[in-house]
């Protein structure tokens, strides 16, 4: 970590922006130095959403992960059986969602809707992969936490799947 700090000492004296602070507090970017956080910040797009505005729809190809800088976001699942959307999570300032988009472009499994007026930073996969390729050391420090987040989710899913089906399940995971 020391070399990352000394790589750009000037960054230590610059005041941190709200986005840099929000990114630094996330587990995904917690291993990055201030200079490295600034590089991630440089690829983020700040988007403003009005209350009720759709951020992405269920089934849309996933391209970006989002970090809430202000406001709240509802994660809902739309089913054919009921007309009502099923809310699976309500996220607030400083939380992230849609991070699997950094790995592949699979369709979104749920929709994200701004519950209140929201300011959200979006990090798109093409820009993120470009950054990982240009800065491999920085890439490793982001990929390891991302792999840990994914591993934790797989374990949590395994606990939910009945033991009789786990053998079938694991061959796909």
């Amino acid at each position: 970590m020391a070399h990352a700090v000394w790589a750009n000492p000037k960054s230590l004296f610059r005041p941190r922006t709200p986005l840099a602070k929000a990114l630094g507090d996330l587990p995904l970017f917690s291993r990055l130095s201030r200079a490295e956080i600034e590089k991630v910040e440089a690829i983020a797009h700040i988007r403003t959403y009005s209350a009720g505005e759709c951020i992405f729809e269920q089934g849309d190809p996933s391209v970006a992960m989002f970090v809430i800088m202000a406001g709240e976001v509802r994660i809902v699942i739309r089913t054919e059986e009921s007309e009502e959307d099923r809310e699976v999570a309500r996220l607030g300032t400083g939380e992230m969602f849609g991070e699997t988009a950094l790995l592949d472009g699979a369709p979104r499994t749920a929709a994200a809707i701004a519950a209140t007026p929201a300011e959200i930073a979006a990090i798109a996969r093409p820009d993120w992969i470009d950054l990982v390729e240009r800065q491999p050391a920085l890439g490793v420090r982001m990929l390891l936490p991302l792999a840990r987040i994914m591993a934790a989710r797989v374990r949590a899913l395994n606990l939910q799947v009945p033991t009789s089906q786990q053998q079938n399940w694991e061959q796909y995971v």
């Binding site: 440089a42 690829i43 797009h45 988007r47 959403y49 505005e53 759709c54 951020i55 992405f56 849309d60 190809p61 996933s62 391209v63 970006a64 472009g105 979006a122 798109a124 093409p126 820009d127 470009d130």
Partner: peptide, 25 residues
């Protein structure tokens, strides 16, 4: 070049943000 692309994407409506990023790439 990346900053120019970002400035262009800023103009895109929220609903088409992800599509435009992907297609531009």
């Amino acid at each position: 070049g990346r900053a120019f692309k970002r400035a262009f994407i800023e103009l895109v409506p929220n609903r088409y943000f992800e599509t435009v990023v992907s297609v531009l790439d």
